[in-house]
Design a binder for these strands. Structure first.
Lengths: 248, 248
DNA sequence: GGCACAGTCACGCAGCGTCATCGTTT
DNA sequence: TAAACGATGACGCTGCGTGACTGTGC
């Protein structure tokens, strides 16, 4: 079953303009019939649902786009994650209700309140729990942005320089792949690798594990490493995982 | 206890820029020490809390301003109303969770879903319940906007014309105030009065009752009617209430 | 041939974030 | 005298709403 733009707008409860916009920014790009009319298909339906969930959780459209295009994106996991974030939102609302009740008592002089309690439920406490959780789950988007930030003034030379260093590291690494992924020498190199990420963004162990997964799951990444040596992607993945497991 | 802008920003969990903005648009205007620095006092604290509550409920700042400046505004009632709207929001979040669970089952082929069920919790159903509730509670703001709309092209003459008609109606009404507020003749005039509101906005019985309250509670309104005849504000209030009680 | 629906510009707006620049206070 | 805090512009951004005008399909 496929839908026209009006039909989809109706069943999804969004405006046609919104769908136009999502098309414009490349967030939800439908097929075109005869190169003219937009045609939304089954697969677009779940895609739009995801967009709406992320939007409900106040993610910027730009981030949503990156998340949904990320090869690591997993629909079912995303849905489960949404649930958790929604639960946190509910908690926030509950706290707001508590603040309301307290405030009512305060204006009736039944209790006294510290000034900051008036805003307890709005500010940092909970909102950070939410933000932290969201970042933990979708932090790679944050990393992307940091990366953009840190390299925005880079010259060609800067890039060339970085590439040189990477190549050097890589050759060195490949030269040691006769060792076990868990061997100290490899782990030392992996540690260097981990730290070199800081050139672009602040890594975390969680994210590093995600990166490891990418090395074997995303064909583009995999191809890049296999070029150096067959089996290298898997080798790095294992070494990185071991590294993560032994952190902290 | 009074606060500087930085202090308030910190305890309320908003940015300094936000407070600047609220000052600029006249939403929260602090005192100025020596005509220079902003000084936020006790009364500003509750005011800001209200702003944050309304903002949480996604009211535009413009509406918030009008609501908080409305003479009918009652802090305690507002707090209670916030609770109700927050409850509806929570319900919406619960429904979202249900949709998530269903979707998970669907992609695991455990159940089938109609396409529109994918969006059931986002769209109209609940969101309208929320919007309706909000409008019922704070609809006078909506009326104000309609009124702006409908009169934006009015000329001086249009206003003069309307005033003339009003005066005529008023004299007629006063000439009959020896009757009971509930008498048919008064009720007929009240009906005319009710309908004349349509010149500016679509009235509802709920709002009309609110208007009746204003006639006796808001000094500005009261003065306007008392000028015609002492006791008129109360008389109109009673007639209007009776009218509302017998509608539908 | 009318009406509903499709499309593409293009402008506008809220609610701040984010400098830049400057004075004041400690 | 520097650092922390205050003020006032002014420009920028996101996520669409809201026309205006045109083409297409029944």
């Amino acid at each position: 079953m496929s839908y026209t733009i009006n039909q989809l707008a109706k069943i999804a409860g969004v405006s046609v303009r919104t769908l136009h916009h999502y098309d414009d920014v490349g967030l939800l790009v439908p097929k075109r019939e005869d190169n003219k009319y937009r045609v939304y298909e089954e697969s677009d339906l779940l895609h739009l649902q995801q967009i709406l969930f992320f939007r409900e959780l106040e993610f910027p459209l730009d981030d949503i786009k990156r998340i949904l295009n990320d090869p690591r994106f997993n629909l079912e996991r995303a849905l489960v994650d949404h649930k958790k974030l929604i639960e946190i939102k509910k908690k926030r609302l509950n706290d707001l209700v508590k603040t309301i009740d307290k405030t009512i008592k305060k204006i009736n002089k039944q209790i006294t309140m510290k000034d900051e309690e008036l805003y307890g439920s709005f500010s940092k406490n909970e909102m950070n729990e939410y933000a932290e959780e969201a970042k933990k789950r979708w932090g790679h988007t944050e990393a992307y942005k940091q990366s953009q930030e840190r390299t925005k003034n880079w010259t060609q030379e800067d890039y060339a320089h970085f590439k040189e260093e990477s190549d050097r590291w890589m050759k060195n690494f490949v030269a040691h792949t006769h060792n076990d992924p868990q061997s100290p020498i490899i782990q030392t190199l992996i540690n260097e690798h981990y730290n070199s990420l800081r050139t672009f963004y602040e890594p975390s162990i969680e994210m590093y594990r995600g990166l490891a997964d990418m090395y074997i799951n995303d064909p583009r990444f995999k191809a890049y490493y296999e070029k150096y040596k067959v089996g290298l992607a898997q080798f790095m993945h294992d070494a990185m995982y071991y590294y993560c497991d032994n952190q902290k």
